[in-house]
């Protein structure tokens, strides 16, 4: 951890600043998501005040409703805050699950080799070549009857879409690491295949997972919003979701009503950009091929001491 922080610090150019900007923006959304009940003035599906008075419909942004209200009498600021919670829940769950399935599968496939590996690679490549939104649509279509239309269903649909990415990267690094001398040494010592995978290969092949994970999180967020926009994602009764709010805003655009469309979209783009910046920044600072080092000040401590002794 400390070493990778130092690596980041020693990198030259824009990469470092982009990374810091991304981390700060992501942190802001995490705060919104975690403290949503205290930050949001209303519940996500609350269209009356606590006194039972109905909120106005399509009221423009004002001191009362900072970002205005939408066509369902909801306070948009509250919807944006609660939407952050939904987005982070779904994205964390799906990234975690797809890494949980993809990484061991890739490790096993790459280590075993032979025809099972070939079959797996072919299968995963086929899935990977498929348009991700289409795959997500198919999975949410299928999961609707089994799991319903909540956070879990959306997360599972996205999980299925992103498994191939982890599989490919982990499998390829495993294949090249398998022939390394230290693995051969382990084998010569009589280590069992499972031990080699767990103790020798795992640590070496998971290094790229954080980068893919953050970039996938950004992508998954976009897919989640897209599903919501098409009306195939999280059902409005389950949670606040930015994509769904945008689909509601679509009808009012021709009347020039901009606030229901602007703010949820702004939230999506800010969070996606933040996650992308973190991912790209990590990639550019941790990947030695892309990275440009800063010149480090050289301290001649040994020489100075010698000089002092003389």
């Amino acid at each position: 951890m400390r070493r990778s922080l130092r690596t980041i610090w020693q990198t030259r150019g824009l990469a470092r600043y982009l990374l810091v900007a991304g981390v700060v923006m992501t942190a802001a959304f995490v705060v919104l998501a975690v403290f949503a009940p205290w930050i949001a003035p209303y519940d996500f599906a609350q269209n009356t005040t606590d006194a039972g008075e109905r909120l106005p419909k399509l009221a423009p942004p004002s001191g009362e409703h900072w970002l205005g209200t939408n066509d369902q009498f909801y306070d948009i600021w509250s919807r944006v805050v609660w939407g952050a919670r939904t987005a982070l829940q779904v994205v964390l769950l799906s990234v975690f699950l797809s890494a949980l399935v993809g990484v061991p599968l890739g490790l096993l496939s790459g280590f075993t080799g032979g025809w099972p590996d070939r079959v797996m690679v072919f299968l995963m490549d086929a899935l990977y070549s498929f348009p991700s939104l289409l795959l997500a649509i198919v999975f949410s279509f299928l999961l609707r009857s089994a799991v319903g239309g909540g956070v879990l269903a959306a997360a599972l649909a996205l999980t299925a879409v992103y498994i191939p990415q982890y599989f490919r990267v982990v499998r390829n690094t495993t294949v090249s690491a398998r022939e390394a001398t230290y693995v051969e040494a382990a084998r010569a010592l009589g280590a069992r295949p499972f031990t080699i995978m767990r103790k020798y290969l795992f640590g070496n092949v998971v290094q790229s997972v954080p980068v893919i994970g953050t970039l996938n999180a950004a992508d998954a967020l976009g897919t989640l919003a897209a599903l919501g926009f098409l009306g195939l994602g999280i059902q409005p009764t389950e949670a606040a979701e930015w994509g769904y709010d945008l689909s509601r805003a679509l009808d009012d655009t021709s009347a020039g009503v901009w606030w229901p469309a602007l703010f949820p979209g702004l939230a999506i783009i800010l969070l996606i950009t933040a996650l992308t910046l973190v991912g790209e920044g990590l990639n550019e600072t941790l990947n030695p091929a892309l990275r440009r080092r800063r010149l480090q000040p050289v301290r001649f401590t040994a020489l100075a001491r010698e000089g002092g002794a003389r």
Binding site: G243, L246, T253, G265, I268, I269, T273, T276, E280
Partner: peptide
């Protein structure tokens, strides 16, 4: 480049 890729296409369309 990052923003145009990150922006949800339907949101860009609406704007």
């Amino acid at each position: 480049g990052v923003v145009s890729y990150a922006a949800p296409i339907f949101w860009v369309g609406i704007l």
